[in-house]
């Protein structure tokens, strides 16, 4: 990795303040992310796993600018973006987009699909000229596997998987280099999950996208990621390729995390679907 990495996170620290009940004075803080370091190169998919409360989402939200970092450094294409101003942040958002967890909550219920996909171009009018927006939106719908004839429908008329495709189309509209998927497939059922993952994989090839893929679902991570970070208590406890981690987890927490994956047919000892590593039998 000699080239400049797309995203570089160094010693990231994020905390949520705790305010006193009456005077709203800051009386403490809840450390969500203590010390996180990683890099993503162009076209790479990095997975972030960990249990609930491990700080996965906070890392994502801080990178995209929804939370403020308390310390550390986030670099995007070599530029420090930790203390970005509003205008810098706006420019940055062309290169970095996010797909949200809940496909039912992340789309404005009052906008049609076309309006949802066109919305990014209202913020960045130079990406697509006004007269071509409708046709471009339809092309994007087509690209993510939605029927462009449904452009005037509203989000509630779609299924969860279709909605997540709308969310992906919206993220793609700005032609970003990095897409952060915060539990993007966790709310979908397994077969739809696979379809959306395949879509993400195809798009990655086509647009040379990099993903920061956040999930608690290890099989999803294994399926899509080039590299995996295991997060526990706001600290990266282990890092490596999915193969390394799944076959030979080093850290104690990683071992326990992988062991917690339910085994579908525990009586079929030695079956090929059995996850590698030591699985404690209680």
């Amino acid at each position: 990795m000699t080239e400049v990495s797309l995203l570089k996170v160094q010693n990231l620290r994020v905390s949520y303040p705790i305010h006193s009940s009456i005077l709203q004075r800051r009386i403490g803080e809840n450390m969500a992310v203590k010390d996180v370091n990683f890099t993503i190169s162009a076209g790479q998919t990095v997975g972030l796993v960990g249990e609930s409360g491990s700080g996965k989402s906070t890392v994502a939200r801080t990178i995209i600018g929804l939370e403020k970092a308390d310390g550390g450094r986030i670099e995007f294409e070599g530029r420090d973006i930790t203390q970005s101003t509003r205008t810098e942040l706006k420019a940055l958002r062309r290169d970095m987009q996010m797909v949200f967890q809940d496909p039912f909550a992340s789309l404005n219920p009052r906008l049609s699909v076309q309006e949802i996909i066109v919305e990014p171009w209202l913020a960045h009018p130079d990406v697509v000229p006004k007269n071509r927006r409708a046709s471009e939106a339809k092309a994007l719908m087509d690209r993510v596997g939605l029927n462009p004839d449904y452009a005037s429908r509203f989000p509630h008329q779609f299924s969860g998987g279709q909605r997540q495709r709308i969310g992906i189309a919206r993220a793609l509209a700005l032609q970003p280099k990095l897409i952060i998927c915060d539990e993007a497939v966790s709310a979908l059922d397994v077969s739809v999950q696979a379809q959306v993952l395949n879509l993400l994989d195809d798009l990655k090839q086509e647009f040379n996208l990099a993903y920061l893929f956040i999930s608690h679902d290890l099989s999803v991570i294994e399926h899509i990621c080039d590299r995996v970070l295991v997060l526990n208590g706001g600290v990266v406890v282990e890092e490596g390729t999915p193969r390394e981690l799944f076959e030979n987890p080093q850290d104690d927490y990683t071992k326990r995390l992988f062991a917690a994956v339910p085994v579908i047919r525990p009586w079929l000892n030695g079956a090929s679907s059995k996850p590698a590593g030591t699985i404690p039998r209680y």
């Binding site: 929804l66 987009q97 992340s106 404005n108 009052r110």
Partner: peptide, 26 residues
């Protein structure tokens, strides 16, 4: 704090747009 409002923010839409075009209709 709904996700679609945060989504509008991550798209780079300004406060004016979020207040009058996203929050007001809702």
């Amino acid at each position: 704090d709904r996700e679609y409002v945060e989504a509008a923010r991550t798209l780079g839409l300004g406060n004016f747009h979020i207040i009058f075009r996203t929050l007001l209709p809702g």
